[in-house]
């Protein structure tokens, strides 16, 4: 596996670590068997590389938007509003942790 591919897959995992191979295949349009082989050492094709890169860029843009909105809330909302938002975010993060704590879904299930 090339260094470029390794670096891309590492970054992909940091952004989408909770996705199963089946979800990656569905979102990227890459065949499920190819997804499995790519994440287990096979060389990627240019089209596959582009597809995963596009997904990551989309997610990065989403993340920037959410972070920017959160900062806006911190400056604009009242104390009460911030506490309510904090409670909501805490619950969502905790739920996400409970759902995906069982082990990396990229590895095992499809």
């Amino acid at each position: 596996m090339s260094t470029l591919q390794q670096s891309l897959l590492k970054r992909y995992h940091s952004l989408f670590g909770d996705k199963t191979y089946r979800q990656i295949a569905h979102d990227s349009g890459i065949q499920l068997s190819r997804v499995y082989r790519i994440f287990n050492g096979s060389e990627m094709k240019i089209g596959e590389y582009q597809s995963l890169l596009e997904q990551m860029n989309g997610k990065s843009r989403d993340q920037v938007r959410v972070i920017s909105l959160t900062l806006q809330c911190m400056t604009q909302l009242s104390q009460k509003g911030q506490v309510e938002l904090e409670r909501l975010l805490q619950r969502r993060v905790y739920l996400s942790q409970l759902q995906y704590q069982a082990g990396s879904s990229l590895v095992a299930s499809s």
């Binding site: 942790q97 409970l98 759902q99 704590q101 069982a102 082990g103």
Partner: peptide, 10 residues
């Protein structure tokens, strides 16, 4: 079962 296993310790 995996979600339940994660929740029960909490």
């Amino acid at each position: 079962s995996s979600v339940i296993s994660n929740v029960l310790p909490h």
